[in-house]
């Protein structure tokens, strides 16, 4: 990490007051997202859903994740944003215990992801980037397998599986082979697979990648509704800035293995507006461009290019 890059502290989450800056869930309309309680039964403050300090991971000489600090507060929808290759998947795979944590610490609800793997796995539902349902099983069998793997007791199993399928709108298709499902249906089936185990933290890696716009909205509506109904924390990665803007309470902008800025979409946009000093209504994509110095990818024009060093300073001020 270079000295002028993001320092650990600037990524402190600005306290989000629910209701004022939180986007309303689409389907439920009137229901504000209900984050889980901030205090535990013992009266102590509940640990953050995810607390990640100085996380690094390299594939050979590729520094996929290069010193990431972030905190996901219990009950929020947190978006990890960045272009392809930013390191989102690698970071999330460290959080899920799929990859070791070679440097830094990762805690999920206070449990160390490197040392208490089983405890961490029991608390998370993970939907990987690929469409990962087993095509040669029915939707119901796919969900029931995960109920069994998470030790859902036999007497509750059928009911829970049916409820999970119903919650994602797959009750009618439940006994069809998953191989006959559309992309959006498979994503929803994967949501049901996660939901049936009652995770406290749902991790979704690019849940809408490769889906048509209608399926994308459908997947998001189910995520928001489930989150509103269960109060679970959601950590989602995406490279669709508009989706993050619409559905996430807070976002971390990730680029080249680092978190460059972290706040609510509203504040990030407001900060950019202030910096520009005009009345334009910047989008989250504009913020991203500004923060990473226009270096979003090879195809980007240099028009928005700024000195990277200056941008980094901006990032740390922003964060």
């Amino acid at each position: 990490m270079t000295p002028d890059a993001v320092t650990p502290e600037p990524v402190t989450p600005a306290p989000v007051t629910t209701g004022t800056v939180t986007p309303e869930p689409v389907t439920t309309g009137t229901v504000t997202p209900a984050p889980v309680t901030g205090t535990t039964a013992t009266g102590g403050v509940a640990p953050d859903a995810v607390s990640c300090r100085g996380l690094r991971y390299s594939f050979g000489r590729t520094k996929a994740v290069d010193g990431v600090d972030l905190t996901v507060v219990s009950g929020e929808v947190f978006g990890l944003l960045g272009p392809n290759g930013a390191g989102k998947t690698t970071a999330i795979r460290c959080l899920t215990t799929l990859l070791p944590v070679p440097a830094g610490t990762v805690q999920v609800f206070g449990h160390d992801a490197a040392k208490e793997r089983m405890a961490v796995r029991r608390m998370i539902g993970y939907v990987p980037q690929q469409l990962s349902a087993d095509a040669s099983l029915t939707g119901r069998e796919n969900v029931a397998l995960f109920a069994r793997l998470f030790d859902v007791r036999r007497r509750e199993r059928a009911e829970r599986v049916a409820l999970a399928l119903e919650a994602v709108g797959l009750a009618d298709a439940a006994d069809r082979m998953a191989g006959t499902y559309s992309g959006g249906m498979i994503r929803r089936l994967e949501l049901a697979q996660a939901l049936v185990t009652a995770p406290r933290l749902l991790m979704l890696d690019e849940p809408t990648i490769g889906l048509d716009p209608i399926a994308r909205t459908g997947v998001w509506e189910h995520i928001t509704a489930i989150r509103a109904a269960t109060g679970m924390t959601v950590l989602v990665t995406t490279h669709y800035m508009d989706e993050a803007d619409q559905y996430c309470d807070r976002v971390a902008l990730m680029h080249a293995g680092r978190v460059q800025a972290l706040d609510t979409p509203e504040r990030l946009k407001a900060a950019l507006r202030d910096r520009r000093g005009d009345d334009s209504a910047p989008t989250l994509e504009d913020v991203f461009r500004d923060v990473v110095g226009g270096d979003l990818g090879a195809s980007e024009e240099g028009g928005d290019f700024r000195d990277v060093r200056r941008t980094r300073r901006t990032a740390s001020r922003l964060g």
């Binding site: 402190t12 989450p13 600005a14 306290p15 989000v16 007051t17 629910t18 439920t28 229901v31 209900a34 984050p35 889980v36 309680t37 901030g38 205090t39 403050v45 509940a46 953050d48 905190t71 507060v73 219990s74 009950g75 409820l163 119903e166 919650a167 939901l195 509704a225 489930i226 509103a228 109904a229 269960t230 109060g231």
Partner: peptide, 19 residues
């Protein structure tokens, strides 16, 4: 600065979805 004291989750929305 982690925000504490968020409103406790109510059972109502869960009941609404039957979850």
């Amino acid at each position: 600065a982690a925000p504490a004291g968020r409103p406790p989750v109510s059972a109502e929305p869960a009941a609404a979805l039957g979850l």
